[in-house]
């Protein structure tokens, strides 16, 4: 099993950031995905989108609550977010991250400052935040395999030999 590793600066958001705040309903009809990266987090902080390229998103509790819209994860990926770290995440959003191959780490006692350097390794359930090692809740072996494959579609294509 391979892992996804990376490093990037922390971009921090607060608690209960819902998927409407990640990408608002008014943009969901589009087929042009560049619209997502332009408007991601628009209702939370319009300056955020420009800072996400190569960043690791750091969130408080209940990240991605609300709507099941997978477009929220697509928007983060389009904007260049490498990985997501949260104190806790809503169930559907968490699963959408895995299914789209966006590394997601749950660290219940997460503490981080804007701009801290984050290093991550999906297989090790381990993160380095500003040089300090922290543990994340372990993912199941299957979730790790889906992540490593780049998402559920690639995983299924590999498993079914297509």
């Amino acid at each position: 099993m391979s892992s996804i590793t990376g490093r990037g600066p922390a971009v921090c958001i607060g608690d209960d950031v819902d998927t409407d705040l990640i990408i608002a309903g008014r943009y969901l009809r589009t087929k042009d995905r560049s619209v997502f990266q332009e408007h991601v987090f628009e209702d939370l902080d319009p300056t955020l989108a420009a800072r996400l390229q190569g960043a690791v998103l750091i969130a408080g509790k209940n990240l991605g609550c609300g709507s099941s819209r997978e477009q929220a994860v697509v928007a983060l990926q389009q904007a260049g977010v490498q990985a997501v770290v949260a104190r806790s995440a809503a169930r559907i959003f968490f699963r959408n991250c895995i299914n789209r191959g966006l590394p997601v780490f749950i660290v219940p006692d997460l503490f981080c400052h804007e701009g801290n350097e984050i290093r991550f390794d999906t297989e090790k359930n381990e993160l380095s935040i500003a040089g300090k090692e922290v543990r994340s809740l372990p993912l199941s072996a299957r979730m790790n395999e889906i992540l490593a494959a780049g998402g559920l579609v690639s995983y299924i294509r590999r498993e079914t030999g297509r």
Partner: peptide, 21 residues
Amino acid sequence: DSHTCTYGAAGAFATGIGSTD
């Protein structure tokens, strides 16, 4: 759709999922 849980009123297990699922 996240509000798929509505159907629990019929005694079903109903849950919202993302588009890939």
